[in-house]
Design a binder for these strands. Structure first.
Length: 156
DNA sequence: GCCAACGTTGGC
DNA sequence: GCCAACGTTGGC
């Protein structure tokens, strides 16, 4: 099993929004970066766990944990010409944008801020610190466990 | 709101 | 295939 970090702008879709979604699940749609797409398509497996990270907001931080419930899904927003993520180059028979479904597992109290991760010598190799713009990224088992040792998980 | 970093596009 | 122009992300 592998660990991941998924970024979302909380003003658009927060961890609380995921908790309040039907079945606490959502399709992770809207990713339009090829490296992130490749990770979603090729590397993430059903049952993997991911941090839910809040980006582009007042306090960038890991807010919760989610589990991957489905993989290999064509991103439906690519086919929806009313969506900001519409991409006419994505064909139904050969979808360009592949994504996953995730389910909320636990909230972190306190949240783990970007600031605290920057200051933590155990986390200096985190992809988050060197590849700030990559919206889907790997987390090592050591990083995962270290971060969880700094906080308490509250099941949702 | 600024702006550095960086991914994508498109002319050549 | 190169690379300049352009657009977006995201921390601050």
């Amino acid at each position: 099993m592998n660990y991941w970090l998924l970024k979302s702008e909380p003003d658009s879709f927060s961890f609380s929004d995921l908790v309040n979604a039907p079945d606490k699940r959502t399709i992770w749609d809207g990713v339009r970066n090829y490296q992130a797409r490749n990770i979603l398509r090729d590397d993430i497996a059903q049952g993997d766990l991911a941090f839910f990270y809040h980006s582009a907001c007042k306090e960038p931080a890991i807010a919760g944990i989610c589990r991957v419930t489905r993989t290999g899904l064509a991103d439906p927003t690519a086919f929806d010409n009313s969506s900001p993520y519409f991409d006419p180059r994505s064909e139904q028979k050969n979808p360009r944008w592949i994504t996953i479904e995730v389910e909320a597992v636990a909230a972190l109290k306190p949240v783990i801020t970007l600031k605290s991760m920057r200051q933590d010598s155990a986390l200096q190799d985190m992809t988050l610190l060197s590849r700030a713009r990559l919206s889907v990224q790997p987390v090592s088992a050591a990083e995962w466990q270290h971060i969880l040792s700094q906080t308490v998980q509250t099941p949702v």
